[in-house]
Simulated assay, not measured.
Amino acid sequence: MSGVAVVGATGFVGDAVVERLRTRGVVAKSVRAPRISGTVGAPAPTEQEVDAVAAEIAPCTAVINAAGVADSLAGGIEHLDGANGLLPGLLARACNRLGVRLVHISSAAVQGRRPGLDSTLEYQPFSAYSRSKVMGEQAVLAVGDNVCVYRPPGVHARGRAVTCAVARLASSPLRSVASPGTDNAPQALLENVADAAVTLALYSGVVPRVVHHPAEGITTSGLLTALGSKPPHVVPRAAAQLVVAAAQNACRCSTGLAGQARRLEVLWLGQEQAHSWLTDIGWKPPVGTGGWGRMTIATNMDLEDA
Score class of each variant (00 low, 15 high):
residue 23 T to L: 13
residue 24 R to M: 03
residue 23 T to Q: 14
residue 120 T to S: 15
residue 76 G to K: 13
residue 127 S to T: 11
residue 84 N to G: 10
residue 50 V to G: 05
residue 67 A to Q: 05
residue 105 I to H: 02
residue 130 S to E: 03
residue 108 A to Y: 06
residue 22 R to S: 11
residue 31 V to A: 04
residue 142 A to K: 10
residue 77 I to V: 15
residue 140 V to R: 01
residue 107 S to C: 09
residue 51 D to M: 07
residue 130 S to F: 04
residue 139 A to I: 08
residue 49 E to Y: 04
residue 104 H to M: 05
residue 113 R to C: 05
residue 32 R to N: 03
residue 53 V to K: 07
residue 138 Q to R: 13
residue 97 R to K: 15
residue 31 V to F: 07
residue 48 Q to V: 14
residue 131 R to W: 12
residue 99 G to I: 09
residue 55 A to D: 07
residue 127 S to F: 14
residue 46 T to M: 04
residue 127 S to K: 08
residue 67 A to F: 04
residue 99 G to E: 11
residue 124 Q to K: 13
residue 97 R to P: 08
residue 62 A to H: 05
residue 77 I to R: 15
residue 140 V to E: 02
residue 17 V to D: 11
residue 24 R to I: 04
residue 106 S to A: 13
residue 120 T to L: 07
residue 57 I to E: 00
residue 118 D to C: 00
residue 85 G to P: 01
residue 120 T to Y: 09
residue 37 S to D: 11
residue 142 A to F: 08
residue 109 A to F: 10
residue 14 G to H: 01
residue 133 K to D: 06
residue 52 A to F: 05
residue 92 A to E: 08
residue 26 V to C: 08
residue 119 S to A: 14
residue 94 A to K: 12
residue 33 A to W: 03
residue 36 I to Q: 03
residue 47 E to Q: 12
residue 94 A to S: 15
residue 63 V to C: 14
residue 44 A to I: 00
residue 35 R to V: 11
residue 104 H to T: 04
residue 105 I to Q: 06
residue 65 N to E: 08
residue 34 P to H: 06
residue 106 S to D: 10
residue 25 G to R: 02
residue 134 V to G: 01
residue 45 P to F: 01
residue 112 G to D: 06
residue 55 A to I: 01
residue 55 A to F: 00
residue 120 T to R: 11
residue 120 T to D: 14
residue 134 V to E: 06
residue 47 E to S: 13
residue 83 A to G: 10
residue 112 G to Y: 06
residue 91 L to C: 09
residue 17 V to H: 12
residue 38 G to A: 12
residue 66 A to P: 06
residue 72 S to P: 13
residue 35 R to N: 02
residue 27 V to W: 14
residue 27 V to F: 15
residue 60 C to G: 01
residue 13 V to L: 12
residue 45 P to R: 02
residue 129 Y to G: 03
residue 31 V to E: 04
residue 81 D to E: 14
residue 113 R to M: 05
residue 45 P to L: 04
residue 69 V to M: 09
residue 62 A to W: 03
residue 143 V to G: 01
residue 33 A to N: 02
residue 21 L to I: 03
residue 36 I to A: 07
residue 76 G to S: 14
residue 15 D to Y: 01
residue 15 D to C: 02
residue 139 A to M: 08
residue 20 R to K: 14
residue 139 A to F: 09
residue 145 D to R: 15
residue 28 A to G: 05
residue 15 D to W: 07
residue 53 V to P: 08
residue 61 T to R: 15
residue 139 A to L: 08
residue 26 V to W: 07
